[in-house]
Design a protein around this nucleic acid. Structure first.
Lengths: 144, 144
DNA sequence: TTGGCAGTTGCGAACTTTTGCAACTGCGGT
DNA sequence: ACCGCAGTTGCAAAAGTTCGCAACTGCCAA
């Protein structure tokens, strides 16, 4: 079984269509530890199937993001990147605006926030993936 | 005194250059209660000064966002919008993915999250503006 | 008050992302 | 196993965003 099979099951259960293009995009992102840009996903998919169009990749990553099986990373001055949302390893990102370091924030640390929003606003937040900016410990020490 | 004067003071204190273009973009966004797209900002600025280029608007909103005096709203299927970050009225947004309703979340509700990140990761989050998605109370009642 | 220059601007061109549309296809119902 | 069609795809063209560069200008220092 491949590492994206849980995501595929999740899509099937949602009753959405599972096309080869979607499976290939999912595979490209899940079989990669880092974060892939749209172009990089396109390259990888084309190695398997050369006629998949870039616009399909755009539509597909948007779709997979909305389905909650991939997360989007949007950092100033960098192309948008996508990464797998792996069951049991859900996390968010904190990026240092000084040195660019990226810290992974465990999902459980967001639980408090989620509770507050439910209690105070009745809002059920969808905390699939979030990117925060700020300053890491090292950079605070240098220039507080 | 105009309502963006505090933001202007903040920029001056940061030691960045305060050009007429920047002042006009700031004015357009601060003299508006809603959220303006880049094009709308451009239109308003051009009414004052017709030769300001769209690319300048793009560069300026990015700059003002990084300075923390305006916030960015990025909703799927809509153009990116910008709004004033008013002193004492800082807030974040929660958007319902079902009905599109937008709730303003008070900044103090994020304090807990900020504390956790500082304690656990030593990371000083910059909570200028955040957009969360999820489901509002009404839509949860209809389709839980 | 003025001079110098690092940072900003307008313009054009490149690049990225979205969209309209006709052809195609996954998948539920028969 | 096959059918029908809502949803998806590839393509091409449009729209949105960024970039390179020469000219310009806030703002600091003298």
């Amino acid at each position: 079984m491949s590492c994206e099979s849980r995501a595929i099951d999740q899509l099937r259960e949602s009753g959405v269509r599972l096309t080869p293009q979607r499976a290939m995009v999912l595979e490209a992102i899940y079989h990669n530890d880092g974060h892939l840009s749209v172009d990089e996903v396109h390259e990888r998919v084309q190695q398997q199937s050369p006629y998949v169009d870039l616009s399909t990749i755009y539509r597909t990553v948007m779709f997979l993001k909305q389905q909650g099986v991939i997360g989007e990373l949007r950092l100033d001055g960098q192309p948008v990147r996508y990464e797998a949302v792996r069951y049991g390893k859900e996390h968010h990102h904190a990026v240092c605006s000084t040195c660019g370091a990226m810290i992974e924030i465990d999902s459980v640390d967001m639980q408090e926030l989620s509770d507050i929003l439910t209690q105070k606003y009745g809002f059920a937040v969808n905390l699939i993936h979030l990117t925060l900016t700020g300053q890491c410990a090292a950079c605070q020490a240098i220039s507080p």
